[in-house]
Nucleic acid binder design. Structure first.
Lengths: 262, 262
DNA sequence: AAGTGGTCTAGACCACCTA
DNA sequence: AGGTGGTCTAGACCACTTG
């Protein structure tokens, strides 16, 4: 409630063509960018900004709404509007499916979380048989029914990724892959034990805004896109043996790939 | 103005806890998802929805604002609110930097656009020397000054990507790379001619909402994230010879990568 | 109890587009 | 000219958080 909390903000330019609520958003954005408001810090309240700029409350709220859409701030009912902190980031390296990693006991997700000191969890585990969607069927080579494995990954209690694997029934039915816990090394190691020696993976990446479902599942803040990754695993005979559809909170990931120049 | 244009929409549930503007957004979203409103089609006007639901205009506008944030619709001043059409997508394959492509005459962007029948353009070309930012310097191995090449790529008149390349001065100064048009095969081919045989590239990918600058440069619609890609090129001696920082309209791209399983 | 953001109303004037 | 969205006001009541 300090009268100085708006001290870093300037005045409006009444001669400008730019809408008032955009000018206010511009000033707040600049203040955030310049570090005048730090991560996690509370911005001036709506009432203070109404007072400072001499505008109506809806105008101030429109400004906040812009910044929220840009993912710069988030609001907490009854508490205030805060500069959104950057969450810890999960880096996915291009060697993450190397056989040497599979040959260790734990799954890639758990191993990696340990090395960065985060607490990993997997929940919403679901394994069942379903009819293949046209897209999955096309990727797996005209398969009718598939084994589906869904699971959600969390780091330090925060959901970061929701993944769904699809495997042809003739490969996966009545194998450890159809168990909720497929055992050490994960399903890729089981596939190799079943004689499907893995050759390579193909990953397709898109980014988009989340659906309301995805907002709920990943507990996404406003202004956070998702990375939608579809990976297909091929064995040495050129057969697609798994499709994995993954939706990731974009603010929690950096993907990295190595490309040959030859 | 047809009284039937809201025919696909239901009634509000006054007993629901869900805010009215969210209920309206839900109904519109569902209608769009089910194809009751097609791509590019106009939604009922604000006035019609005010009439249909018996709410105030601001409430209807809040609903539209949700859908806009999700990238589902876009508004045109004086015309209406429309279902946002999905633009044509540019697919980037993981072999896009293979030497065989460099050895052809044209740049990758132009070749590829031709094959999908789009009209490619490059503008805002800018070449100059600058001090390296800390991040670029770290990636290039403690380089102080760099040659900077900026350019914007367009497909069929639509900006889709804005790229900035950084090269160490000792490599690029007084070479064709410092020319606005570096010649056939692009700067990667020039680098090889200068004795820097390329070994591999590393790409780092993030997704996030665009800054206001990026919205302007790429003419992004509301609710469209950007893919931020940073590529580093390494020569056979392990030296980083170029860093390319690229911001792409996420709705215009699918990236694809091949990962080894070994 | 006081302060905060969340929702909603009922107006107003403007700029833009189509006809 | 009439319809459309863009901006803005001045209220109101509510739900949530904090002291």
């Amino acid at each position: 409630m300090s009268p100085l909390s708006t001290g870093v903000l300037g005045a409006l330019d009444p001669t400008s063509d730019r809408a008032v609520f955009r000018q206010i958003a511009d000033q707040l954005r600049e203040a955030i960018d310049k570090g005048r408001f730090r991560e996690g810090e509370k911005l001036p309240s709506e009432a203070e900004l109404v007072e400072h700029y001499g505008v109506s409350r809806m105008t101030v709220r429109n400004s906040f709404s812009i910044l929220q859409g840009e993912g710069l701030v988030h609001s907490e009912h009854g508490r205030g509007v805060f500069v959104r902190p950057r969450p810890p980031v999960r880096r996915l390296a291009s060697d993450r499916f190397a056989r040497r990693h599979r040959e260790q006991g734990k799954s890639a997700f758990l191993v990696e979380a340990d090395t960065v000191g985060s607490h990993p969890e997997v929940d919403s585990l679901q394994v069942k048989e379903e009819r293949a969607t046209p897209d999955v069927s096309a990727r797996l080579g005209s398969v009718r029914r598939v084994l589906v494995r869904r699971r959600r990954y969390l780091l330090d209690g925060r959901p970061v990724e929701f993944a769904t694997s699809y495997l042809p029934l003739d490969i996966a039915r009545d194998t450890p892959i159809a168990q909720p816990n497929p055992g050490p090394g994960g399903i890729y190691r089981r596939l190799e034990e079943l004689g499907h020696r893995l050759d390579h993976f193909e990953e397709e990446i898109k980014a988009r805004m989340p659906s309301p479902d995805e907002v709920a599942t990943l507990r996404l803040a406003a202004g956070v896109p998702v990375i939608h990754l579809i990976r297909t695993a091929y064995d040495t005979e050129g057969r697609a043996v798994e499709v994995c559809d993954t939706v990731m909170a974009a603010d929690a990931y950096v993907l990295s790939y190595r490309l040959p120049a030859t």
